[in-house]
Design a protein around this nucleic acid. Structure first.
Lengths: 146, 146
DNA sequence: CTGTGTGCAAACTCTTTGCATAAGT
DNA sequence: ACTTATGCAAAGAGTTTGCACACAG
């Protein structure tokens, strides 16, 4: 368990405000609170439900609909990235860099694959008339039981 | 590996029956009909809804619940493979070989990437205690509009 | 003030489930 | 017959939508 909670990442309230302003989003109470949860401590892979629960745990009253709205707005302005690993839930990644994921099937957890540890050697040519928007790689993992 | 040989030829009713028997599934009217749709003409990437519609179009009465049951049973015995490309729908691929996919975002279509046109050069080492079950690559495409 | 954001509940989509009926062997 | 499969409708999860009220600028 990596507990790197050194303040190297936490932008603080004013930082979040700046991020939102810079993205053209009004810094409302809810967006500020969700922003702090999302960007307050390193990279996260979180679902709407999880974010909602976490907000509640922090005594922040935010409706689930607002959580969805906020996640989508953040994604639109490039603060988040959607990760598709599982047909049933949508995960949002605070790391918007080009990178890939491990997906731990046992507990539905998404983990970044360290950059440089994985590569795609031949990106295929897109069929005529199409362009590649992204290449997603998901390495599925299962816990070894013995 | 019981991959269906000659994937581009219609196995015919007797062929489907043999496939089902070989997988330990009773060849019921519904499974036979769905099997023919699925394996009758080359590789397919189909959702439950699409398969249901197609069955209806062929005058085959099958309930949606049975379509889901059948798709999952076929997947369990290795006749199909689930493809995760989109958070909202589940697609089933009649090609169970190791291969990757294009996903055309404009019309939610899944297409196989020709074998050899794409490769993953370094499969990352799985974290200790875990084993890799599969590596999925999805190349997302958008239609070029000009 | 004025417009954007939020909360709530209801609606929606995709998928699963429970149980009585039907069909396979 | 005996067992497994199917159909239906209802329930379930995750997500979205519509509209009145609240809040930021």
């Amino acid at each position: 368990m990596s507990t790197i909670e050194s303040a190297n990442m936490d932008p603080g309230a004013s930082g979040i405000r700046a991020i939102l302003r810079g993205s053209g989003l009004r810094p409302t109470r809810q967006r500020m609170a969700l922003g702090r949860i999302l960007f307050g401590k390193g990279n996260r892979h979180i679902s709407a439900e999880e974010l909602h629960d976490e907000a509640r745990d922090r005594q922040v009253a935010v409706s689930l609909a607002t959580v969805y709205n906020t996640l989508h707005q953040f994604t639109e302005v490039g603060l988040l990235r959607e990760v598709v690993v599982d047909g049933s839930k949508t995960y949002f990644d605070t790391n918007t860099d080009d990178h890939h994921h491990f997906f731990i099937e046992d507990d539905n957890e998404v983990v970044d694959i360290p950059k440089g540890q994985m590569g795609v050697d031949q990106v295929p040519t897109a069929p005529p008339g199409y362009e590649i928007t992204r290449v997603d790689v998901v390495v599925r993992l299962r816990r070894i039981k013995d």
